[in-house]
Design a protein around this nucleic acid. Structure first.
Lengths: 187, 187
DNA sequence: GAACCATACTCAATGATATGACTATTCCTG
DNA sequence: CAGGAATAGTCATATCATTGAGTATGGTTC
């Protein structure tokens, strides 16, 4: 029941179409939730039927028409209710960690390769988050922005995403180097 | 298809019953996967039918009988195949982050309360992981253990779990303090 | 000796998520 | 003008995960 609230939280920033949402859930929102387009469109339909968002048709001549959605007061109330009930912590759920858990009994080469590749991906995400953070705070310092802005939620979740990826990167690099040192692999 | 591999990876450490697995997935394994008992029992049944593990009945007189499972050569091959195909990175999926994303438009009090509670939980997990790490490496230093031991997989995943929770804790504390400073809440 | 907890495991139902294939339109490139 | 990318969205299905309730045994505690 939480994709619903993730969609509502993102729609607080303004009107978006389903297609735009898929883009947001691919990048900026990916620091706290991910969903494929089909899920998002389905969720938007449900949310509208429940009266938590409203859509309005926008006729476009240069490309297919679209529908833009906004959160209704009922939707905001739903979010408030969601925020009021204690949430359960979620843990990491990562295939790569399963492989590392078993690495002593397997050929380490493919695991090392994946760790190194993942470190690069994580580093790229850190940079992406850094760019997003800079853009969000404009020319204010982080401290000033967090004190004065009236829209810090996205910045804060972005900070968490950055921290996660940074930690991820460091761990991947360390483990890859370590496994490489233990069992030197050609190539 | 990854719970299957998580179970196989844990069973590499020795014979376990379904019940014991539920305990392991509650604590030590929770740094990279989580599952409820029903999932685990169902998965064990499937794995046995697929010939990837074998079970043997153990008659007990002081408590209900149990079945202990071990990974077969086919199971090890399945794990090797799993480790050979590139895995997709998974992102955070956390209700609490959804709330923070929306916090500018909500009453911050319950969100702050949850952040502070979560920081305490994360700190407790860090300590738990520290104890597990100490136990795994015995009286060796971390460096020596990682160089010499022939079973470092669980240690490495535990390190990742620790890093995640530490990062989580720092973020929760920082965000809670920040939100408190912005909108002083009584109580 | 009644209540409760730990061990050991199962069934059923629902909800969430992932995968793949599909329909349209328009713009840009070669 | 053919092909591909970007926009905008839909349908169907299969698997995964979560929730809740149950069964059964034996040990411990009040």
């Amino acid at each position: 029941m939480a994709l619903r609230h993730a969609v509502l939280a993102v729609l607080l920033d303004g009107e978006y179409s389903g297609y735009q949402l898929t883009k947001i859930f691919d990048v900026s929102c990916s620091n706290f939730w991910y969903a494929v387009p089909q899920q998002l469109y389905a969720e938007l339909t449900k949310l509208e039927r429940a009266g938590l968002i409203t859509g309005r048709q926008v006729i476009q001549h240069d490309r297919p028409n679209k529908r833009l959605f906004t959160v209704t007061p009922a939707g905001l109330a739903e979010l408030a209710a969601f925020a009021a009930v204690p949430s359960k912590p979620s843990s990491i759920r990562e295939d790569l960690l399963v492989m590392v858990q078993a690495v002593d009994r397997l050929d380490p080469a493919p695991v090392i390769a994946q760790l190194e590749e993942r470190a690069v991906i994580a580093a790229a995400k850190v940079e992406l988050f850094d760019r997003m953070l800079r853009q969000l705070r404009g020319d204010l310092t982080e401290e000033a922005f967090l004190r004065e802005s009236d829209r810090i939620g996205p910045y804060l979740t972005c900070l968490r995403g950055r921290g996660f990826e940074q930690e991820n990167r460091e761990w991947c690099e360390r483990v890859a180097a370590l496994l490489r040192a233990r069992a030197p692999v050609p190539g």
